[in-house]
Structure formats: C-alpha cells, structure tokens
Amino acid sequence: MNPSSSGRPSLGGEALLSLGMVLLGAFVVWQGSLVKAAASYSGIGPGLFPGLIGSGLSLIGLVLGWEALNGGWRAMPDDETTHQDADWRAFGLISLAVLLHMLLVGWAGFIIASALLYALIARGFGSTRPGRDLVIALLISVPVFFIFTRGLGLNLPAGWLTWGA
C-alpha cells in the first residue's frame, strides 16, 4: 500500500469500499424487486424493506465515496498502527489455515483439522515451534471433541481417528 503524504494509509481502499457499498446496495434493491409480493393485508410486501435498506446502503456508499475522493474519510484515527506496512504473508497463512480447516473438518475429522488450524495460525503469528504448537492444539481439541460427542451427545466428525464411532 502506498502511504500518502497526509499520512493516510490508503485512499484507494476507502474509495473501493465505498464503491462496494454502492454496488451491494444496488444488488439488494434488485434482489428485493425480484421477491414475489404475496398478497397481504399489511399493504407492505416482502420487497419493501430490501428496497429501503439497499437504497440506504447505496446512499451511504455515495457519501463515503465522495469523502474518499475529497480528502479521505472524516475523523479517521491517526495512530501508529495505521502507518504499519501490512504483513500479507501472515494474512495469507491465517486465511489458508481457516480455509484448510473448512475443507478438512468433515473428512479428516475435527481433531486433525483443528490441530492443523492451530499450528498454522501460530505459524502465521510468527511461532517457530510447530511441534509444541501441535501438542497444545491436541490438548485443546481432544477434550473438546469428547465433551461434545460423549458428554453432550452431539456430533463432530471423527474422521481418520475413528474412536468416536
């Protein structure tokens, strides 16, 4: 990201988010117009609120977009954290961890997926001891698994470790 002279992190991001709001609002209005209005004595169908809320969202998006293009959003905090460079590697590792967990949990099972999630996120935060992280992860996920499945009679996938069945 390119810090501008005024010390603002990214006017581009602000403009982009504003545009996103305008588009999301328009999408909501459009979806609302597709809802079949069932006859009702209230005189208000299910399409009215999507129309109102979508319009509101677009309108706020426009206001924020105008602000972004005219000196940036108002009353932004100006502390040292906003001047930091982003660590996209950490961001990517954590995203990977969550998405991998999503793919694995139903297949490899809750314990394995959660242990991996834990170790990867710790890595994302700069931990250099994957072995220790995995042990801690198991100390959390194994009891949780048994509390759920044995104690509460709920189901969490056992996956590759089939002692839960």
Binding site: F125, G126, D133
Partner: peptide, 14 residues
C-alpha cells in the same frame, strides 16, 4: 500471541 489467537480461532470455528 501466536498461541492465544490460534486458540481463539479453534473456538470460533468450533
């Protein structure tokens, strides 16, 4: 931090 946030996410996903 690494251990704390990893733990938070284990509970969040659970």
């Amino acid at each position: 931090r690494p251990l704390l946030y990893a733990g938070i996410l284990v509970f969040a996903t659970l």
